[in-house]
Design a protein around this nucleic acid. Sequence first.
DNA 1: CGGTTTCATGAAACCGGTTGCATAGACGAA
DNA 2: TTCGTCTATGCAACCGGTTTCATGAAACCG
Lengths: 354, 354
Amino acid sequence: MASRHPDNPRSAPTIRDVADAAKVSRATVSRAFGQPNLLSRETVALVRATAERLGYVPNPTARALSTGRAGNIALVVPDITNPFFAAMMRGGQARARDQGYATFIGDSDEAPELEDMLLGKLAGQVEGFILASSRLPSGRILEHARRRPFVLINRDLHNIPRLLVDTGPSYAQAVEHLASLGHRTVAYVAGPTRSWSNRQRYNATVRTARRLGVEVVRIATSRPSFEAGQASTDELVRAGVTAALAFDDVMAQGIMAGLAGRGISVPGDFSIVGCDGILAPTFYPPLTSVEAHCAEAGEQAVDLLVEAMQGNASAGRRIVLATELVIRTTTAVPPPRRHNKRRHTHANINMEQS
Amino acid sequence: MASRHPDNPRSAPTIRDVADAAKVSRATVSRAFGQPNLLSRETVALVRATAERLGYVPNPTARALSTGRAGNIALVVPDITNPFFAAMMRGGQARARDQGYATFIGDSDEAPELEDMLLGKLAGQVEGFILASSRLPSGRILEHARRRPFVLINRDLHNIPRLLVDTGPSYAQAVEHLASLGHRTVAYVAGPTRSWSNRQRYNATVRTARRLGVEVVRIATSRPSFEAGQASTDELVRAGVTAALAFDDVMAQGIMAGLAGRGISVPGDFSIVGCDGILAPTFYPPLTSVEAHCAEAGEQAVDLLVEAMQGNASAGRRIVLATELVIRTTTAVPPPRRHNKRRHTHANINMEQS
DNA sequence: CGGTTTCATGAAACCGGTTGCATAGACGAA
DNA sequence: TTCGTCTATGCAACCGGTTTCATGAAACCG
């Protein structure tokens, strides 16, 4: 019994079949698609008609080999299932498709080694990379970026085009918002240490808090996940804070679940702020969160990459996307002070490694 | 100023460079990687060492052209941002990577035409397709499947290997669960009409309900999204049901938000069941839901595809993945009957088109 | 020791396109 | 009429691998 996929072996018409059928050379067929202006009107028409009749479709692999342009890009993210990245990918993939590129996907599972491996494996087949929230050391990124056009999302390396979702100001605003409600001690529930976004959010939080005389307790976590957020609730409670700024919506959700499990009500007893804006409106109660325009980030990153791939000297391009704090229902006036105002904060809280 | 990507033009070592450096033929280099058993131990070692030193990596495009095997697969889904598909993709992509395949991604945005287009565009560069919850007509799928190995997820076409997440029994069980709690009228909030999963869930619901003397009201929606779920709340309330089985967790979440907005409490006034299991445990209150083992579905689909690509006659393989109803906290005894037991159900509810 | 096998390797064709260069014919100018 | 241009097209090399086939050397055998 022969293969069930007839054109895998042969059958799929090649440029030669079309050339023979149209009684022209292979070069002419190629040009009829690539540079029709070099050919006479009639020849183009003839070739195209013949191709159509035979069901000829140029083989992208062969084309890629010959031209060096594969028509593919790769989108590498730490975790596809994180709504921020999912939305970003959706936007990016759609945009790439519109521009004629196909998209490879890579999930690095938050692991730098895996990320590095993916970049290596994919390098041969793609014209360019979009690397979102890379956990790779800068040196390694630069090394990869020397070989192919690169665009970074949420990582700020000189000489590499990058798209930054600038959440800092919104975190500052969130702190102001909490302070104005009367909160005096808040927690920042951190994301990945390596993450640029995390540093940016943390720094903005601390800076603003200091200015307003608000105390910030930093709580480290293993990974930006629901479980990690939930697990952080213990420390959160022990720290005696009245509000938390989470690294993202997913963690905020974990925290809300953790608090609910302890009978602590939001926002009555505790205020929470998240970040991304995808999940936030779907919570109950709807989460006060920083709207990060995820899909747009993906689209703009693709635009940037296309620019770089076409050689337009975008070397140092640095696009900054503004965000907004959207106040929903999880932030409110803190509860009246109770007796046990704990004060051993930093001791058992800075358990973050390096 | 020359290109910023030195090996784009040249620089990247080819098989020829390695051959020259090692003073062997290109064929030998090729074999040193492909069929080392054909060569002497020393030659293999020499070639590999040389390759290593030069930083040689075989060009996958060239290899693909010559062998016909691209080492790529494509995963096409209706919506990347749906947690079910995201988790599935994560599992599938990881599995594919482990098996040496790179993964293209296609988001069809629930649109059959787009899906068709994606399959066409990608066909040239992939060895096989995984098509999840396809909205394409059967004929079109079969046509595509004649050209390349295909695996379907949640679509049951004879002669095409497929992986089915068998949620029917769990929906039956969910209905029994609700009935045993005392619910007499429940709603099924439907997913895409074209969807196999949707039909399966609906049929199981109706059949079981009939057996138990429970009435089912079907509520049509535009698309399995939070917004659609939320929008269905109106009808849900008008229908006078005491519980809803949603097509998936995302819709269940929308419904919960919609009910909360109306001051209807879950599960006190209303019970809800979802499906997928990704989102469910993160809700507050945690959602009673059918655990669909999304990631595993992705992995198994890849296994099936790899099998098909290697020619193992898996033509008719049909893998069925069992699911389980996980009872959390959104299902409870219905509230005591009130006066207004509405009865104009079917009239304004079956607004679904064909 | 001649003849047959086996083993390791190289030469060259091939995969399916693209593109630099050559050329034939048409056309315009002198 | 002759020469120079320009246009449309073909030839053949090339992209970077894989694989068939041939060949020389070594091993084996009676």
